[in-house]
């Protein structure tokens, strides 16, 4: 019966994952390997294709008029990077909302102290977003804009400093992470484990969080044994990734803080500002 409960938890989290995250790993890998028939993504590989591809970016989040106003406000010198960065922020804010809904679906999460729920999200959400980027990436580039666009790694590296430094660490991490070959049902459990980290600074009541995490960890361990019977030590390897992840988030937040100081025209999305303030 205990194993049955752990399997039910895995199924529940997988269903929530499918419900709240629009681009699954299965779909992303199909797009990346050209198995989606005639709907190949638009490729951004230089400034010209970026301009052409911009109509795809943000089309879901922003009313056209507002987008045009913001676009025209940012057409000064160096505007391209800032404009693209702005689009990334809108998508990230939307993704934070998706992760929040997923977190709320973890059994027991909404019964935690509300301040602790906030702390878990504040510290966990960027880690979750970086893990969720991995399925969208390969060594040559990344899918963006819900899989409608493929942006090359070389193009991202060609942007001016410090924008060119933002994605390279995520590519390095993702290429290694993808060798673990997790599927969407494994990912759902791993994301829940990350969210339920009992060592986040400022938590008021650690014990119930650790208890919830322990159950999800057991479910993840069983899931990996059943789903990847030939992959030795996969559970241990996956848990080790959590250490690398914290370093990537720390570096990412420092880079954003640097941008805030150096880029006169940069405005940070209020939700992202809230998350990053006093984070690391």
């Amino acid at each position: 019966p205990e194993a049955a409960d752990l399997r039910a938890l895995a199924r529940h989290l997988y269903e929530a994952y499918l419900k709240y995250f629009p681009l699954t790993k299965a779909k992303a890998r199909a797009i990346l390997s050209g198995k989606t028939g005639d709907s190949a993504p638009f490729v951004i590989h230089d400034m010209k294709s970026l301009m052409e591809g911009e109509q795809f970016i943000n089309c879901r989040q922003m009313p056209i008029q507002e987008h045009q106003q913001q676009t025209s406000a940012l057409t000064a010198a160096h505007g391209v990077e800032l404009r693209f960065f702005h689009s990334c922020q809108s998508r990230s804010a939307e993704a934070v909302r998706e992760v929040t809904e997923f977190a709320k679906s973890i059994p027991g999460f909404v019964d935690l102290d509300l301040n602790d729920q906030v702390t878990l999200l504040k510290y966990g959400v960027i880690e979750v977003l970086i893990i969720m980027m991995a399925p969208l990436m390969n060594k040559d580039g990344t899918l963006i804009s819900y899989g409608q666009i493929f942006m090359t790694r070389e193009f991202l590296k060609s942007l001016r400093k410090p924008f060119c430094q933002m994605m390279e660490p995520k590519f390095e991490f993702s290429v290694k992470f993808n060798t673990l070959e997790l599927d969407d049902s494994d990912m759902a459990l791993f994301l829940a484990v990350i969210i339920l980290s009992g060592d986040r600074p400022g938590l008021l009541n650690v014990k119930p969080i650790e208890q919830l995490q322990e159950t999800v960890l057991h479910s993840l361990e069983l899931q990996l044994k059943l789903n990847h019977p030939d992959s030795l030590q996969l559970f241990a390897k996956l848990l080790q990734k959590m250490t690398d992840l914290r370093q990537i988030v720390t570096d990412h937040v420092h880079l954003i803080q640097l941008l805030k100081k150096t880029e006169v025209d940069m405005c940070l999305h209020p939700l992202l500002q809230e998350i990053m303030k006093d984070l690391y």
Binding site: S90, E94, K104, L114, L121
Partner: peptide, 20 residues
């Protein structure tokens, strides 16, 4: 609470998403 106003809203608002 004020420091994390939007996160609070996202957590408590179960149906309509906060205007992002």
């Amino acid at each position: 609470k004020e420091k994390h106003k939007i996160l609070h809203q996202l957590l408590q608002n179960s149906t309509s998403p906060v205007d992002l």
